[in-house]
Amino acid sequence: MSAKIKKYAGHPLKSAEIREGKVPTARWRPKAKYMWSAGVAMSRFLNELKNGRIIATRCNKCGRIMVPPRVFCEQCFKPTDNWTYVKDTGTINTYSASFIAGDASRIKEPIIVAIIDLDGASPGMGIQHKIGEINWKEVKFDMKVKAVWKPPEERKGAITDIKYFKPV
């Protein structure tokens, strides 16, 4: 704030004053439900997950094998050319251990999250997933990991058809 200005607007409140109704408020909970279409490329990707395989798309101009797959190459700005399977193994690009849930509340056993660069895709082509069967303190950068799939009858065609990746 400028040294020339002496007073600043704003009436601070404590969160408790709001919770306990000491300040008049209006409450509203939107009813917002959605059905997100996976679209052309991701529908095929999800259908392949159901089969226990990971599929990518390739752009013949730049040669990139891209996962998640997409119908267009955002760098060459042209349609992608082929489908190609990549492996369900990869290396940990980066990771974190989360002690909080979506609503900022605390969870006891941390969720290990990572970006996994998949084998068979172009370098640096990672997907986001969880890491399991290891203590979070043992996880390392560049560690080799492999997908742990749900049994076929439990797969739904969702990213969660892979339970997590575990160290090889």
Binding site: P30, M35, S43, A158
Partner: peptide, 22 residues
């Protein structure tokens, strides 16, 4: 063959009435 993922926006709001509104 088109797949979907269902979900909702879990949002809940408390609006202060403000200086004039109060």
């Amino acid at each position: 063959q088109v797949r979907h993922w269902p979900g909702h926006m879990e949002a809940d709001y408390i609006y202060t009435h403000g200086i004039a509104g109060e």
